[in-house]
Amino acid sequence: MHTPNDTRTPVTVLGLGAMGRALAGAFLRAGHPTTVWNRTPGRAGELVAQGASLADTAAEAVAAAPLVVVCVLDYEAVHTILEPLGARLTGRVLVNLTSDTPQRARAAATWAAGHGIDYLDGSIMVPTPVIGKPEATILYSGAREAFETYEGTLKVLGGGASFLGEDHGTAAGYDLALLGFFFSAMAGLVHGFALAGAEGVAPKDFAPFTGTIAGILPPIAAGMAEDLARGAYSGDQDNLVMEATGIGHVLEAARHRGLNTEVLDAVKGLADRTIEAGHGNAGFISVIEEMRKPSPTA
């Protein structure tokens, strides 16, 4: 018989997209009895071959384990699947690893509380190949006791299982903030390839040098956090006027080569407005004052 603290706790995984299959596979490799279900048939074959039990219905899947993990496209899909199962989930722990907004995470928590469900909202911060590895980071917030009870089981999915507090929306807040950083950086990286290519630089020659830029970001982030904590935007090492000038040079070169400059135009606009507001001698973090305002086009 399995107990809640047993590392081989039975688990149910609802949703067998690429990430759902990765989650179920990690549980199976760690020896957890794993039941799986998906709205679209035909995705469980490999998991069943590894020992998973395929449920015919979501209700059957939920009944198979005290710990239920759902990972689907969005919270609308979560609602469609779970709304009819509220009573069947009572007394179980529900871990929702679907990416969506903090507001929807809190609404889901309210729904779960109304059905006597211990609810954890989580955010997966790594791609599918990293799931199940020590370096995989998954963030959780919500029911503290549920997290502490099943922490060992959840760490099967990734060694970096961090509990961020009892506000169910916190993990989603981290998730979207980090994704905003990620996608903005990705757009900048693609622009870098475009500009380098326009200057005759082969992608394979350019790529190794991106590590230099990426490597300086963690200490920059730490310094920005310190500035924000003390409410002062130091410009000791650089200042926004200097940085805006550098952005201008990039834009000039890109336009000369006929490239799209939408991304950097937005960055330059933020910098210019921040300088006009009197922060020209501050560091780049000072543009947060403009980012805290609604978008001009909103």
Rank of each mutant, 00 (worst) to 15 (best):
T153C: 15
A172P: 09
L67S: 04
A177L: 15
V190E: 13
R144L: 11
G152R: 06
H279P: 13
G91D: 15
S53E: 05
G122C: 07
H191P: 06
T274Y: 08
A61N: 01
G180K: 04
V241R: 10
F193A: 02
D175H: 07
R144P: 12
P129C: 12
G91N: 12
P218M: 12
D272P: 05
S184R: 13
S53I: 05
L94W: 14
P208K: 08
G192K: 00
G20C: 04
G86H: 11
R104S: 05
V241W: 05
L179V: 04
T170Q: 02
A107P: 06
L47S: 02
E243A: 03
I131E: 04
A64P: 00
E46H: 03
A232Y: 15
W37V: 02
T7F: 14
P208C: 05
G51P: 00
L54C: 01
L89V: 06
D175R: 02
A253N: 04
G258N: 08
A22W: 08
T9I: 15
A77E: 02
A77Y: 01
R292F: 05
H256G: 03
V78L: 08
G283L: 06
I288W: 02
V36F: 00
G180F: 05
A26C: 10
T35F: 04
G17V: 14
N5A: 14
A198R: 00
S99D: 06
R292C: 06
A177F: 13
A109N: 07
I131C: 10
T34Y: 01
E46F: 02
T170V: 12
A61F: 03
L189V: 10
M186Y: 03
R92A: 06
G51H: 02
V241G: 08
P127Q: 14
H2Q: 14
V93D: 10
L120I: 13
